[in-house]
């Protein structure tokens, strides 16, 4: 056997259930908070909650929390590239 066989069962059933509960609470929160008045504030709130939900899915359901560190780095790189695309496009459309 290798010194490091497939790690079994990173989280337990309870952890997944708690993560799901938090996701449901965040869903309810985002529906309620979407009615905030200045529209740009509602946009920021909705997108922040969405990012938080995605972070929970990545860390727990997709096991990033339990994987080796380089998986996290790997996920980080395309997000940085995407951020560069978005900022360059917006600088173009705003300054044109």
């Amino acid at each position: 056997m290798t010194q490091e066989t497939r790690q079994t069962a990173p989280a337990d059933y309870g952890t997944y259930l708690i993560v799901w509960l938090v996701l449901m609470i965040l869903l309810a929160a985002t529906v309620v908070l979407a009615k905030i008045d200045p529209l740009h504030l509602a946009v920021v709130t909705s997108m922040s909650i969405a990012a938080l939900k995605v972070l929970l899915v990545l860390l727990f359901f997709m096991h990033l929390k339990y994987e080796k560190g380089y998986y996290g780095l790997m996920v980080f790189i395309p997000l940085v590239i995407l951020a560069i695309f978005i900022s360059l496009t917006f600088s173009d459309t705003y300054l044109r």
Binding site: T30, V31, A34, L39, A42, V43, S46, M47, I49, A50, K53, V54, V57
Partner: peptide
């Protein structure tokens, strides 16, 4: 998760 706020909430 991202599609939902963009089309239904905002």
């Amino acid at each position: 998760i991202f599609l939902f706020p963009l089309f239904y909430l905002i």
